[in-house]
Each structure stands twice: as C-alpha cells, then as structure tokens.
Amino acid sequence: MKTTPTTARRLGLVSCHDCRLLLKAPPADKDAVACCPRCGSVLHARKPNSLSRTWALVCAALILYVPANTLPITVTTSLGSSQSDTILSGVIYFMQSGSWEIAAIIFIASIFVPLAKLITLVYLLVSVQVRSTRRPRDRTSLYRLTEMVGRWSMVDIYVVTILVALVKLGAIATVEAGPAAVYFAAVVVITMFAAESFDPRLIWDILEEEA
C-alpha cells in the first residue's frame, strides 16, 4: 500500500500522552513548556530522556534484586525456635510439601518475572542504542508484554502482609517480615517505573532514520 510510513513525527505533529490529541509540534524552545489544549498535560514528541532514565532505573532494580533474593523475606518464630525464609527457600518448601501450583506461582511471580523483565528492558535499550532494525514489531510486543506482567510480581509482598497480620498467635507462633520484603517491593516498583519510562517509538524512529 504505502512505501514510506506516515508517522506523526514526519509530519511535524505531536500526540498528547494522556488524551492522544494530535497537535502541531510546539517550536523547539527550551524554556517554553507546551501543554495540551484539551487535557492540560505537558506535550513531548517522545518521553523525555527515555533511554537514560530507563537505564538508571533498570540498574537500580538489578542491584536491589540481589538483597531481595538473598535476605530473608519472612522470619517465623514458633515455640521458641525461629526460622528465616528467603523467597527461594519458600519455593523449595512448597515443592517439597507437594503444593506445586503455589511453588510455580511464587517462582514465576517473584523470581522469574522480575529478572525476565529487567533482561528484556536491557535488551530493548541496547537494541535501540546499537540502532537495530530487526523485528521492530516483535520488540514492541515484547515491550507491551513486559509492561503488562510486572504488576503480578507484587504477590509475595501481599502474602507477607497477610501472614504478618494473621499469624500472631501469642506464644505459639508469629511471623515477621524480613528485610528482603522492602528490597523486593522496591524492585517491583522501580521496574514498573522503568518500563513506563521506556518509549517504544524509539524502536521505530530508527527504522525511518535508516531508510
């Protein structure tokens, strides 16, 4: 049908991030902040500083991922003896006690998804920076998937919340949240911000610049 794709950028148009109104791009004046006349949000052709912002957040999350997985997430005190559990030892416990579904849920949500999400973001960032033109559609789908599944990692934090609230049977048993819980929550929140700050249109910009 068409040989060169007609993009908003090629025609000097800007699409509002919040309400999608198409507008003539504001003049490139550093001090001026243009706002969408319909919804009032600040206009940008692309998400501002997308690459460096995403890199910074991905690095922070990768660093926090280590204590999140090595420190105990819960400390259970039962009849005088106390037991610390990391995320992984929780998964192993469920496997040994035969709850395969729960072991799989926790493994996927708490260990696999956050790491896969960070690796995917690194891959997308690198692919944009080396100006790759390969399979842009698949990379965009990958980005959308990353953005969608990240929230499910929060499940372990909620499990800890419920355990902490429920298991305080006086002298018999108590559950306390370990230091990993805070690190882990930070990993999930920071990766969500990282995914949000990446702009998938950068993948397609390269295609047009190289053409």
């Binding site: 007609t6 908003a8 198409l22 998938p200």
Partner: peptide
C-alpha cells in the same frame, strides 16, 4: 479520526463513527 499510534507513532485513520476495534496497521497496538 486520525490517531498517532502511542507505541510506534504511525498515523492511523479510521471512521469517526465506528463499531469496530481498530488496531495499528504497523505494530498491532
């Protein structure tokens, strides 16, 4: 209606009064 795709910036055109779901021709958003 003309909309720029939020994921790939392609300008997509479709009827303003429409009963359908419209998907970006280039990236599937």
């Amino acid at each position: 209606t003309i909309l720029a795709c939020p994921d790939c910036d392609l300008l997509n055109r479709f009827p303003t009064v429409t009963q359908r779901t419209h998907i970006c021709l280039r990236c599937g958003a």
